[in-house]
Design a protein around this nucleic acid. Structure first.
Lengths: 153, 153
DNA sequence: GTATCGCTTGAAGTTAACTTCAAGTCAAGG
DNA sequence: CCTTGACTTGAAGTTAACTTCAAGCGATAC
C-alpha cells in the first residue's frame, strides 16, 4: 500500500491532483486507521493511463468514461489497457491530419497573401469545432467520445 | 464603416467576443454619435488573423504580441500579414512532430502492453510541458513567444 | 514524549477565452 | 412618433483541470 505522497512522487503528479482525481471518480483509495489514503500499486498504472490519455488530447470526462469500461471485479490486465490505448490511435491520426491541413492552407495563404474572410480557406475552415461553448477552445474536436465507446468490449 | 453586428456576421464571431477582443487590445473601433462601435473594414482581416492564429494554437496574449509588431501609422499590407503568418510555420511543424511522437510511442506501447511508470516512454515523455500552472493543459508548449519575436521586422 | 513532516478537509482561487445578464440607449422603418 | 431590433455597460458566470489555503489530526524518528 502506498501513501498519497509516494504515489505523487512515483507518478510525478501533485497530491492535490490525486485528491482531485478521486473526487472526480478516476481513481480510488482505501483508508488507514487514522483516515489517510492508502493506494494499491495498481493506481500507478491508472494514473499513467490518465496522463497519457491527456497527452493524446482526451478530457477527464472522456478518460473517466474509458476507465468505466474496465472490469469491476478483476484487476485490469495488459490486454484491457491495450484495448483502451488502441482506441486513441484514430483520434491522434485525426488531430495530426487536422494540423497538417492547417499547415498546407497556411502555405497557400502565404502564397496568395489573402487572409481575407470567406475567401481564404485558412480563416474559414469548414469545421464544426470552435463553434459552441465557453472556455479555452484551442483545437476542440467533436466526438472523441464516440471513438472511446466504439472501443468498449 | 461596419456595425458590430455586421462584423460579427461577416467574421462569424460573436459580438461578445468582439467586445472582449477590444477590451483585450486586439482590435479597435471608433464610435458613432450615439456611442456605438463603428469598425473599419480592416478589422475583418484582423479578426481573421486572430481566428487563424488560434487554430494554429496561439494564445490571445501571443496574438496580441504578434499584432503589436504591425506598423502603427499605415494600414498593414499583405506583406505584413504574410510575415506574421509565416512565423507560425515552425510552430505548426513542432506541434505536428510532437503528436507524431506520441503516436509512435503509442504504437510501441501497445506492442509491449506496458503503460507502467518510468519504464514506458509514452507515460513519461521527456517534455517540459504539462509541468506548471493551473487551467486546462492539453498540449501546452514552451516558447511560442520566441518564435513570434523572431518574426518581428 | 515531542518535534516534525505528512496527511486531512472544504472552500475558494487560478487561467483562458469567452458568454450571459440586467437595465437601459440608439437607429431605422412605417 | 412609435415600435422594434441592434447596441451599450459592468459585473458575474462558465469550463477544465487543477492549486492554494487554513486549521487541524496522523505517523515516525529520536
Amino acid at each position: 500500500m502506498l501513501t498519497i505522497g509516494e504515489v505523487s512522487e512515483r507518478a510525478n503528479v501533485a497530491t492535490s491532483a490525486l485528491r482531485f482525481y478521486e473526487r472526480e471518480g478516476l481513481i480510488s483509495a482505501v483508508r488507514s486507521d487514522g483516515g489517510q489514503r492508502r493506494y494499491q500499486r495498481e493506481v500507478l498504472r491508472r494514473v499513467a493511463f490518465i496522463r497519457a490519455a491527456q497527452r493524446v488530447g482526451l478530457t477527464l470526462d472522456e478518460i473517466r468514461e474509458a476507465l468505466g469500461t474496465l472490469p469491476d471485479e478483476r484487476t485490469p490486465t495488459a490486454a484491457d489497457w491495450k484495448r483502451l490505448s488502441r482506441s486513441w490511435r484514430p483520434l491522434l491520426d485525426r488531430r495530426i491530419a487536422e494540423l497538417e491541413r492547417v499547415r498546407d492552407k497556411l502555405d497557400s495563404c502565404i502564397g496568395c497573401g489573402c487572409l481575407s474572410l470567406r475567401i481564404c480557406h485558412l480563416c474559414n475552415p469548414d469545421d464544426i469545432a470552435a463553434e459552441e461553448g465557453p472556455g479555452p477552445r484551442w483545437l476542440l474536436d467533436e466526438d472523441a467520445g464516440d471513438l472511446l465507446r466504439s472501443a468498449a468490449p
